[in-house]
């Protein structure tokens, strides 16, 4: 029967960790006790199998790849220091994508000068709000609205074969003549302000008017020979 101490001595011999004194004890033990000798042989056998198996695994060297990965990470940390480096990196990525998008837009969106008139309407033209055409009477009316720096501006195009009166009636201040102006040909009302109406005469020509910030309920009347041809209400 082997004691715990005997076992420790035998295992120490297997692991080659015995002192000289313990070596002497080991030899005395295995010389006098066959169980001790058998246990030593068995442990040696197991040890050999384990060593052989460990030796079967070939050595390798990852120093280069580890150092390369570390240097790369160290470079990233130097650019984005601190515990928030992930957020910095994300923000930088966002800015980079945005910048690339802006640069790409310069190539993807052609300059305005290269666009034809139809393509320009998206950026320059106003909303077409009214159109009237009477071929028999020779009258054509077009009204478009724009918004520019807080102003609501209407452009009115009028074409008439015969005499046509264009009358603007302000919805608020009847004496105010600033809302309605003729920009082509000339700005002087041909018939001036008549009562509450600002009247222009058009005959055998094209005329262009602007109506700027018209008060609510303002109206435009188009009369030919005293008869109303068309009406626009703001």
């Amino acid at each position: 029967m082997l004691t715990d101490n005997d076992i420790l001595i035998i295992q120490g011999k297997v692991d080659d960790t015995l002192t000289e004194k313990e070596e002497a004890v080991f030899h005395a033990l295995t010389g006098s006790n066959p169980d001790a000798a058998a246990l030593y042989e068995e442990l040696l056998c197991v040890q050999q199998k384990l060593r052989d198996d460990a030796a079967r695994i070939p050595a390798m060297d990852v120093t280069g790849s580890v150092m390369s990965a570390i240097r790369h990470k160290a470079g990233v940390s130097a650019v984005f220091p601190g515990v928030l480096k992930k957020y910095y990196a994300f923000a930088a990525l966002f800015v980079l994508v945005f910048a690339l998008g802006v640069l790409a837009a310069n190539y993807l969106i052609p300059p305005l000068g290269s666009l034809n008139n139809e393509e320009l309407t998206g950026t320059m033209a106003g909303k077409h709000t009214d159109a009237f055409k009477d071929q028999e009477a020779g009258v054509e009316i077009d009204l478009e609205a724009y918004r520019k720096e807080g102003l609501l501006i209407y452009t009115l195009f009028v074409k008439s074969r015969d005499s046509l009166h264009v009358e603007f009636v302000s919805g608020r201040d009847h004496s105010e003549s600033l809302y309605f102006k003729r920009i082509w040909p000339g700005n002087e009302p041909e018939t001036g302000l008549i009562q509450d109406r600002q009247v222009y005469a058009v005959c055998g020509e094209n005329a262009i008017f602007t109506i700027t910030n018209p008060p609510g309920n303002s109206e435009l009347f188009f009369l030919s020979n005293g008869k109303r041809v068309h009406k626009i209400k703001f």
Binding site: A54, V62, T63, V66
Partner: peptide
């Protein structure tokens, strides 16, 4: 940072053998 290479060289095969025994695959262990 370069000094880390000393530690890697010193311990890589001990770590590798333990891992290799666990995962049973050389490439995975590397």
């Amino acid at each position: 940072t370069a000094y880390y290479g000393v530690l890697v060289e010193r311990y890589q095969n001990q770590v590798f053998r333990v891992i290799c025994n666990m995962v049973n695959n050389y490439e995975d262990a590397v």
